[in-house]
Design a protein around this nucleic acid. Structure first.
Lengths: 146, 146
DNA sequence: GATGGAAGTTTGATGATCTCAAGTAACGGT
DNA sequence: ACCGTTACTTGAGATCATCAAACTTCCATC
């Protein structure tokens, strides 16, 4: 807390990050919209990539109220992208699983993102490696704060 | 379009960027909420940092419909953070300007962001310079796509 | 100059997202 | 068997987003 930041570099990098976050966020929303998904729906569907998840955990990962997830999953389910499964271990829990269609949709969306993310094209292989390492360390730092 | 991405590095960096975007976005929302602002309100207020802007331009910068901005500015104005000014050059235009209170709020929010953004603390001065240059080039590339 | 199209903003309708408070069902320990 | 906790849903209310339609003002053209 005593840092008086005599360092003009940090704010500059923060601004750059903010701009890049804006660009990524916008492209993500557009990619989702192209598949008739909202950003929130795409996020939830993306979380199910590795397998079914309880509602509670989805809410926790997205840092929002569980009641919020109910509506989003309702709409995804109505479109056949997702289904609620009973948990045999604990009948309170409903596990949300992506259907075939749902998995296909996320895979497609992710692929389109990798394609759309042309900013990376400006960098050489070496620079991408540099960037990856820097980002990894920042993320580790961020997670350590939880 | 012919790129078949034999490069496993790009998707990895994209994933890292996505995670970092998530962290930043979440912190931004929290910082805004701590001042009773929604993310959208904070974004608009932040745009006015350099001076008044027409509604139209705010909508354009945020890539949304002008009618959307009307409501957000309404709420900011109701709280005295912003005011609508007539444009002497063109009476169709309403320029939105931050009030004293509004400017103070954004300045505070930005300062709190710079502080909150501890992920950068994991990097040395040299690495921050590297990161800045890489980000700059990615952003230039992104802008060139418009 | 008068007219007609275009631009900037607002209004109203609608739907999605979010929070909060309250309710139901199921778990689990005493 | 009771009680507190956990998981999820429901309902109310605010914000955010889009679209279509109105209104005012500008501007080019006749």
């Amino acid at each position: 807390m005593q840092e008086e930041q005599p360092d003009p570099l940090t704010p500059e990098v923060v601004d750059l990050m903010a701009s890049l976050v804006g660009v990524f966020h916008k492209e993500y929303e557009e990619a989702a919209a192209a598949r008739s998904l909202t950003g929130a729906q795409a996020k939830v569907l993306g979380l199910l990539r590795r397998g079914p998840l309880p509602m509670r955990q989805i809410a926790q990962t997205l840092s929002c109220e569980p009641s919020n997830i109910t509506g989003i999953v309702d709409r995804l389910e109505a479109r056949g992208l997702v289904e609620r499964q009973a948990d045999p271990e604990d009948r309170r829990i409903k596990r949300v699983a992506a259907t075939e269609t749902g998995s296909a949709a996320t895979a497609e969306l992710r692929a389109s993102l990798n394609f759309a993310r042309e900013p990376l094209a400006a960098l050489s292989q070496d620079e991408r490696l540099q960037l990856r390492d820097l980002l990894r360390r920042m993320l580790d730092q961020a997670r350590r704060q939880d």
